[in-house]
């Protein structure tokens, strides 16, 4: 059986530079990430954090790759909702210009077998990336006060392979 991983591709009418900025800027991420935000000085080896506004724990990690505006990768250790015992996973973003758009590919892998985190992120990323697309294209984010319930419930997979 293959290892659990999550792969998602989304096309955004923008430039790689703008999308890369949205992925790494705390203030911008807070808009489309529904109050959560990324924090790092984005040097390879530096700490990375995803501050979760509705939890007292957060996602932490380390910057693995920072190659604007093409590639970004960090480790992802979730400490909220009792996930602290799982080993860190890895998030990689790839940005490619295609005509007037950006093809953004996210690969979230490195999960241990039976991971609970992979179930959560498989529900979470489609919403966050849909919201990111709206934010970059329209300047508005998806109105999603139900964000927390969405990622906390349901066993379905959304894009997971």
């Amino acid at each position: 059986m293959s290892k659990p991983e999550f792969v998602y591709v989304i096309y955004i009418a923008s430039t790689p530079e703008k999308v890369f900025e949205a992925l790494t800027d705390a203030k911008m991420s807070e808009r489309y990430w529904h109050g959560n935000y990324v924090e790092s000085d984005w040097k390879v080896g530096s700490p990375f954090a995803l501050r979760l506004s509705r939890h007292d724990k957060e996602v932490t990690g380390e910057v693995l790759e920072y190659d604007p505006p093409r590639r970004l990768a960090y480790t992802f250790r979730a400490a909220h909702d009792g996930h602290a015992s799982e080993k860190p996973s890895r998030v990689t973003f790839e940005l490619e210009r295609q005509r007037d758009q950006v093809r953004l590919t996210i690969v979230h892998d490195g999960f241990e077998p039976g991971s609970k985190v992979v179930e959560k992120i498989s529900l979470g990323w489609p919403l966050i990336l849909s919201s990111l697309k709206s934010f970059v294209e329209n300047g508005t984010v998806l109105h999603a006060p139900w964000h927390d319930e969405e990622t906390a419930t349901s066993k379905e997979s959304a894009g997971a392979k």
Partner: peptide, 19 residues
């Protein structure tokens, strides 16, 4: 992913993507 991204853009901005 192309068709659905284009659909989302069309619904939200009135402009489809040229992919």
């Amino acid at each position: 992913p192309m068709v659905l991204a284009s659909l989302k853009s069309l619904m939200e901005t009135g402009h489809a993507l040229e992919v």
